[in-house]
Design a protein around this nucleic acid. Structure first.
Ligand SMILES: [Zn+2]
Ligand SMILES: [Zn+2]
Length: 732
DNA sequence: AGCACGCCGACT
DNA sequence: GTCGGCGTGCTC
């Protein structure tokens, strides 16, 4: 007996066995390959599953097995290496295998639509057209020319037609006469061609040569280079080595990291097929890009997190740009890290992986120090621009206007008068993060979350930044009816108003998710700013990624204190990364930049470190702290979270889990909690967490499946949800 | 996660 | 009498 073992798209963490479709012959059965799609009845619905294995028998009694309905493919959708990556991810992150495969496939294929023959839109003669003699249609020369071409070459692409001066209108009228028909023409695989690169400095050359020497084998490389040190040029030259060997390159970029500027650089350098995969793509576009990567037609694949699962016909190189960026870690559902998976992928493909960053994650630095990664440093700023000077501005007892000290406003004015641009970083959108009654102390809070409502003045709304809740801004206190409602704290909207009033001759551009709504908003703004006129750029984290603003010579962090007191053990690492990245935005092309941190805590060790130490030095100190505390990368964490409408149930569930785990402990594992999450109630649900701290990877690898098995076996109270997060990046 | 079944309140 | 509320249980 043959049994199909299938990964079914469901949150259940197991495979499902089916009998082969009734009409399938022995021979067809023998030809089934893992990785093909199979349509199956599942419960009372039909789903598209992925064949994992054809087994001799099942542990499920035969009479309970259903027959699959249809085999959808003859060839695997994903190459073997990528199927292996899916299984590995499913095990490592303890996420249901069916959902992992779903993450690796474009929607089109998940829905069961057939694999589309890739090709260029083209035309061929219809049966009727084939009957025409040479030199037909003499009265319409354009149509005759089109026919002549098709008589010579059977299939001619629309592009070629256009090049021959034959418009689509001509072709359409030929089709209306049923003389020609549309078809797709297979594209002959073409070599990607690289144009000459920029001259390299010694450090860049060493990196390119060192990394290129590992093409064809697995090796992970950490490329550490400050902003402007020419990391991108190193990537480009490595990619050209890769293309020269007839191999494809996969480039991962942060969520909003792919600026048109960077993309243009790729397009200018390579006469090659480049595809881009990001979340904004329409279904069809995404599928075509995916298929081009899979078929090998695309030479370079650039994409965000989910692109780590893009199949490649001839993988040669994987680049993870800004590898420290938190957007590589998925924050819900299948909580994978695209950076970590790209390294696994490199192993499976035997190809090098390059992790690039000005501010590498401590994990990556640790791996480099351990000798697991090769470490390349690009200390110089290309073009000789000097690194910005960071100064701290003590604002204790300073009067502040919308968060600005008089000193800062004066510095801004000077810079604008010199004709330069100013970048102001304030990581808080809205007008003010809190609204209070001056008479009775009432505070505007969210009904569903343990959080204050943010005032959005233009919309006259109070909004929760943790759920969808919003309400109209009250004129009076709902408790005591006083009209003395005061805001505390400053958000970008408020800072923007002050800048507009204070600097009337210069435009202020606000960059946050409220002001940059449209798809092209950010692009248009960047183009406007990069015309070079003096202006003020004010924004949240959005401003610190992707676009470069070469005319900025002053960067100010308005509220450095907000970064200082974080509950998360990664807080200080994040702060150092963020501030270093922000600082890197100041001064380019030979002009020194200036960075100002406004703080009430000028003596705080983290502030002092920012002033006097390089990122590498700070990282070294933080790494030592982590090692002393057994925290990643010295140890490994697994987070279990529960959420439930009532507070006690979730915590009780995790407590049971802990008891059961500890009844038969795993050495090297320690459980902490359950504890309420840093924000205990969110969207009306009470959240708790249980953290497992493992001394190393082997212990964690044993603990994760055990925790899941125990959690699945525990009686699940109604309305309770639990999730597992291996290598959590956020301890909330 | 879906999608059913099932068993109690207010509608024709 | 039945339409539908969502609690509970299952998916090879
Ligand atoms: Zn009041
Ligand atoms: Zn809320």
């Amino acid at each position: 007996m043959s049994v199909l073992r299938l990964a079914v798209p469901t949150p259940l963490r197991r495979l499902f066995d089916y009998l082969p479709p009734a009409e399938l012959s022995e021979q067809e059965l023998a030809g089934l390959k893992p990785g093909i799609r199979v349509r199956v009845p599942f419960g009372r619905r039909e789903l598209i599953a992925i064949l994992v294995d054809v087994a001799e028998q099942s542990t499920v009694p035969t009479e309970q097995l259903k027959a699959a309905l249809e085999i959808l493919d003859s060839e695997a959708l994903l190459p073997q290496s990528l199927q292996t990556l899916c299984h590995w991810s499913s095990d490592y992150y303890q996420h249901p295998i069916g959902e992992v495969f779903s993450a690796a496939l474009p929607k089109r294929l998940r829905k069961g639509l057939p694999v589309q023959e890739q090709g260029e839109a083209a035309w061929q003669l219809s049966d009727r057209g084939k009957g025409l003699p040479e030199g037909a249609l003499p009265r319409s020369p354009k149509q005759a020319a089109a026919l002549a071409l098709l008589q010579q070459q059977t299939q001619v692409s629309t592009a070629t037609m256009k090049a021959q001066g034959i418009s689509t209108a001509v072709l359409r009228s030929l089709r209306e006469k049923s003389l020609i028909e549309a078809c797709t023409m297979p594209i002959a695989p073409q070599a990607g061609i690289s144009r000459e690169g920029l001259p390299l400095n010694d450090d860049q050359r060493q990196a390119v040569e060192g990394i290129a020497a590992t093409l064809g084998e697995f090796q992970c490389h950490l490329l550490e280079g400050v902003t402007g040190s020419g990391k991108t040029e190193v990537y480009l030259q490595l990619i050209s080595h890769c293309l020269a060997q007839g191999l494809q390159a996969l480039v991962l970029v942060p969520e909003i990291g792919l600026s048109p500027q960077t993309l243009d650089r790729f397009r200018e350098r390579f006469d090659a097929h480049i595809v881009v995969l990001h979340s904004g793509l329409a279904e069809g576009q995404r599928y075509r890009a995916w298929e081009a990567a899979r078929s090998g037609a695309a030479h370079i694949v650039i994409g965000t997190r989910s692109a780590v699962f893009t199949p490649l016909a001839k993988p040669g190189l994987i680049v993870v740009d800004e590898e420290h960026d938190s957007s590589y870690k998925q924050q819900d559902g299948f909580r994978y890290s695209a950076r970590d998976l790209s390294i696994k992928r490199g192993q499976l493909h035997n190809c090098p992986v390059v992790l690039g960053s000005a501010t590498p994650a401590l994990e990556s630095l640790h791996n480099a120090q351990q000798g697991r990664y090769w470490h390349f440093q690009l200390p110089q700023r290309a073009g000789g621009a000097t690194l910005p000077q960071i100064q701290c501005l003590d604002i204790r007892r300073e009067p502040l206007q919308a968060g600005f000290s008089a000193t800062l406003l004066a510095r801004i004015a000077e810079v604008l008068q010199q004709g330069d641009q100013v970048l102001l970083f304030l990581n808080r959108r809205g007008y003010a993060p809190s609204l209070q009654c001056h008479d009775c102390g009432w505070v505007a809070e969210c009904q569903s979350c343990d959080a204050r409502l943010t005032l959005h003045l233009r919309q006259r709304q109070l909004r929760c930044h943790h759920c969808a809740a919003y309400r109209a801004l009250p004129n009076r206190c709902p408790d005591c009816h006083s009209s003395q409602l005061l805001t505390t704290g400053v958000g970008t909207e408020q800072a923007e108003r002050l800048l507009q009033q204070h600097f009337t001759q210069w435009p202020t551009y606000r960059v946050d998710s409220d002001s940059m709504r449209g798809r092209y908003a950010m692009e248009e703004l960047a183009a406007q700013v990069n015309l070079g006129e003096p202006c003020l750029l004010l924004g949240t984290q959005m401003l610190t990624k992707g676009h470069h603003f070469p005319k900025v010579s002053l960067v100010a962090v308005m509220d450095a204190d907000a970064l200082l007191f974080s509950a998360d053990f990664r807080g200080e690492e994040r702060m150092a990364q963020l501030l270093t990245q922000v600082a890197g935005r100041a001064g380019r092309a030979g002009r020194p930049g200036q960075v100002i941190l406004q703080t009430h805590h000028p003596d705080h060790p983290a502030v002092q470190a920012m002033l006097h130490q390089s990122y590498a030095e700070q990282a070294e100190r933080l790494l030592a702290q982590r090692k002393a505390n057994g925290l990643p990368p010295a140890g490994q964490l697994i987070m279990l979270r529960s959420d439930c409408v009532d507070a006690a149930t979730g915590e009780e569930f995790l407590l049971q889990l802990r008891r059961q785990f500890e009844a038969e402990p795993i050495s090297g594992c320690q459980l902490i909690g359950p504890l309420p999450s840093p924000m205990p109630r969110r969207q009306g649900r009470h959240r708790s967490q249980l953290m497992l701290s493992a001394t190393g990877r082997p212990a964690a690898l044993r603990a994760a499946p055990r925790l899941v098995a125990l959690a699945e076996a525990l009686p699940k109270a109604r309305g309770l949800n639990w999730t597992i997060d291996v290598d959590p990046s956020e301890l909330s």
